[in-house]
Design a protein around this nucleic acid. Structure first.
Lengths: 144, 144
DNA sequence: TACGGATCGTTTGCATGCTAATGATTGCGC
DNA sequence: GCGCAATCATTAGCATGCAAACGATCCGTA
């Protein structure tokens, strides 16, 4: 079964590289895209909230946000009600990138799955969900 | 279909984190494990050869090898016949880690796939291979 | 009201990848 | 035999993740 994990890793790497390529055409790197996807839907989230939704640590979001701020994709605003919080707001530049990036993402996904039948896609989805559930609910116990 | 890519990414991330956890018990990080797997089989490869087998760039192997050298897992030796080449040789410490690490890897894989039937595993393997073939043979064309 | 624990974001340091630039060595062609 | 292009490894710089340490702010309690 270790072979299956290798295949999964390799497929994910190919997809990630292709996604990064596609996103880069629009001035967005693959990690930044994850932040954008959430903020397009709900602007003004805090780094901590974003980290929770992306299943990533807060420092990761903070660093990505800093790079995105430098790239002119978002701005930080202190929450007026709670001085500990920082709210991340997208710029018009980030909003303008939404349609082309989502389109690129859709095309990439269709391209990657082009040789899979609907049935194969369903099976793939189901298998991945089982693995995710398994690893989420029962993290590998290594003793002590 | 973009949902399928998200699932694949999430599953891979969970597996990688679990693998890193398991390997760390044996003083080896998940990236170093890839190098070990190849060198256990064929000792004395060059960084370039390793990079080719691992589908990773040469600088990545060089950096990983430097960390592994610092950790006492391997040594660099200049090739006597060709001064440009560097050959990576495992230390006894790295050989001693082989059995426990391979065992941990097997257990992790079995654990992650525990809720999948043989049929589901076959379908998963087949789908992943199709995606890999597709992305390898037909990299997404983005136009110029 | 003042203090101390809880809650955030940030900084720091590391591992893993990449691309581009650099440096050493080889080997072919003249 | 010499020089120059090809071939390697390495270095530098960046993006993405993590964990751990730190600093600021808030809030319940005494």
């Amino acid at each position: 079964m270790t072979e299956l994990i290798r295949l999964l890793t390799r497929a994910q790497k190919l997809l990630r590289a292709a996604a990064d390529d596609a996103m880069s055409r629009h001035g967005v790197r693959v990690g930044q895209n994850l932040v954008l996807e959430v903020l397009w839907e709900t602007d003004g989230l805090t780094p901590g909230e974003l980290a929770g939704r992306l299943r990533v640590t807060t420092p990761t979001v903070v660093n990505t946000a800093t790079r995105m701020e430098a790239a002119g994709l978002l701005v930080r605003r202190r929450d007026p009600a709670d001085g500990r919080l920082v709210r991340l707001h997208l710029t018009p530049k980030a909003r303008a990138a939404q349609e082309p990036i989502e389109e690129a993402r859709r095309r990439l996904a269709e391209h990657a799955m082009a040789t899979l039948t609907d049935d194969e896609r369903r099976h793939l989805r189901s298998a991945l969900e089982k693995i995710i559930d398994r690893m989420s609910d029962h993290p590998l116990d290594l003793g002590e």
